[in-house]
């Protein structure tokens, strides 16, 4: 917030720099997706086991 001019310049162009800067986010959400699939599959297996 201190340097609005610099920030807005950053936000404008530099698509490649920006995209590389969100790799950590992407990796984190992929971990989230893995947990999502694993937990759902576990309960699905329990359902099938009890069927």
């Amino acid at each position: 917030m201190k340097k609005p001019s610099r920030q807005s310049v950053q936000g404008k162009g530099h698509t490649t720099a920006e995209e590389s800067s969100l790799k950590g986010t992407f990796v984190s959400v992929l971990i989230l997706a893995a947990i999502m699939v694993a937990s759902w599959a576990a309960i699905m297996l329990l359902f099938l086991e009890r069927f």
Binding site: S21, L22, G24, T25, S28, V29, L32
Partner: peptide, 10 residues
């Protein structure tokens, strides 16, 4: 989920 992580990463 993406927006929160991206806010923190940025």
């Amino acid at each position: 989920a993406f927006a929160m992580l991206a806010t923190m990463e940025r």
